[in-house]
């Protein structure tokens, strides 16, 4: 199965990004293809490499970044939502890229399912 994933919340306030991450990891382990993970609304904050949570807590920016690089999963941050929130190319953790909302629609067109995680 080809899956598109939509993440609508940032890494600190809501559990949505955690659940999306665990779901994506489980899907990869089962051999499914992740077409793209698309970060929208405050979800764009998952890409900010300057985030520095306490060391005894999970760091979702790093976790997504590693997942993206290890499995070749596209991690796309919405340009319009990113600009609003001051996220730009200089702040992106490895594996993330900024692109248009069209990338979300395209993930929906190519994918067999689109799963939304948000608040």
């Amino acid at each position: 199965m080809k899956l598109g994933i939509l993440v609508n919340e940032g890494p600190f306030t809501h559990q949505a990004s955690d659940t999306a991450y665990q779901f994506t990891k489980a899907a990869l382990e089962k051999g499914h293809e992740i077409v793209r993970v698309f970060f929208y609304h405050d979800g764009v904050n998952n890409s900010n490499k300057q985030a520095d949570p306490p060391s005894d807590d999970r760091n979702l920016v790093t976790l997504w970044s590693e997942l993206g690089q290890e499995h070749g999963v596209e991690l796309v941050v919405c340009v319009a939502a990113a600009m609003r929130r001051g996220i730009n190319d200089d702040l992106l953790a490895a594996g993330f890229k900024i692109s248009g909302l069209g990338q979300l629609v395209e993930a929906g067109i190519i994918g067999d399912r689109l799963v939304t995680f948000g608040d």
């Binding site: 929208y40 319009a80 248009g100 909302l101 069209g102 979300l104 629609v105 929906g108």
Partner: peptide, 12 residues
């Protein structure tokens, strides 16, 4: 921001 997605989808 939801409305923005709707408009983009229609463009596809």
């Amino acid at each position: 921001e939801g409305l923005e997605v709707v408009l983009i989808t229609a463009a596809f």
